[in-house]
Design a binder for these strands. Structure first.
Lengths: 210, 210
DNA sequence: TCATTATATGAATTAAAATTCAACATATGA
DNA sequence: TCATATGTTGAATTTTAATTCATATAATGA
């Protein structure tokens, strides 16, 4: 981890690198890894193909760096939200809020983040996307801890905390993804997610079967 | 729609076609569209490359046929479940049951179905995967109708029915997908989904903020 | 049996992209 | 100013995989 003031050169190097990544991000998130060529990235970022290879050893390396950046943005935002002070419900609320915000703030990346995090991603040879998945797993486990504490405090009902984490994240992803695909069709907010999840959808309490 | 008794030849043709599709399905669902070559499909299905082109005009056509078959299996199963007699909660329960069953019965396809239905799928040129998405949309709308009826009958609380459909499907997908990835780690069943969704996760009814 | 037709084959062709690298440009600082 | 280092270029090369098609094989029925 090199620290200290970066020289003008270094800053320029990083700026160029960042420009390439940014351009590639837009292309990849619109059309996917395999439908974007290095030449396209080069043209769009106003560098020559050869130059791209000065920054990244190959296409996959470029993509991986991209994904790691994207994942950093999402992951750090979600993890920070879980550190919020307050009780478990408040932490979880903060987390849903953060998720909605970071998704809406980074619409371009959402596709990519979802593709690598959910569903089957075959963009990069097996094992390379593992770090992203692992990190996502880590987040789910952290969220599960919050649920677990909530359960211990009798704040939440006794379900497998990890499954609750998966479920809550599943609702959030589904609604957010729907929103990304059909913006404005069915407006929703964090409260809706929290209400569906924590309060009951079912009206008749007395019909409960347990 | 040609009807009547298929000749031996026709049956053989269809069997061959089916064998190719089945082999391709396994390969694609393991490694994705772009990481499986026609030669591999040929070798694995014990035909020659040229033969594949007698059945399908090109790789994309082969893939599309596959996806349509897969989608038929999932879609018809889910739609049928929604026709179950009973009240709205029972219909929805049947639907979750059907989803779990069809996922577990078709583990090989789940990846592909998810990839095309959820998340960003760039496998096939734009517009070609639309029919799958449209069909999935149709299912969600149907599910939303059930929610709507349930709301009218005061069985469910008043949320946007379409969002409820998205949310329920989101939970189911997330849990199922998790199960596919890490089988046995956190066992769950349809009841868990129904319980989380319809009954409350939150313990203290009196703390509700609405 | 043999001519005709239908089917299957896989080496050869074509197409598309990734990657390389010798040549060029620009900045640095002696 | 010039020698050196650093960064950039894009045509040429290499790689990879889709697609074709002349040839071979098998089935059909006269």
């Amino acid at each position: 981890m090199k620290t200290g003031k970066p020289s003008r050169k270094e800053k320029e190097y990083l700026r160029h690198r960042h420009e390439i990544l940014q351009t590639a991000l837009e292309l990849f998130s619109q059309r996917g890894f395999h439908n974007v060529s290095m030449h396209e990235i080069a043209t769009a970022s106003e560098f020559a193909v050869g130059t791209l290879y000065k920054f990244f050893s190959n296409k996959e390396d470029l993509y991986r760096n991209l994904i790691i950046d994207v994942s950093n943005v999402f992951h750090s935002s979600l993890m920070a939200a879980l550190e919020t002070s307050g009780n478990e419900l408040e932490k979880i609320k903060a987390c849903v809020d953060a998720k909605i915000k970071v998704f809406l703030d980074n619409l371009d990346y959402v596709h990519l983040y979802m593709a690598e995090t959910q569903g089957a991603s075959f963009n990069v040879k097996a094992g390379l996307d593992t770090e992203i998945r692992d990190r996502y797993e880590k987040f789910l486990k952290q969220l599960a801890c919050v649920f677990e504490n909530g359960i211990k405090k009798r704040l939440f009902k006794k379900f497998d905390p990890y499954l609750l984490a998966v479920a809550l994240d599943g609702i959030s992803n589904a609604l957010l993804f729907h929103h990304v695909e059909y913006p404005g069709a069915h407006p929703f907010d964090a409260d809706l997610i929290i209400n569906i999840f924590f309060h009951q959808v079912y009206e008749k309490e007395d019909l409960r079967d347990e």
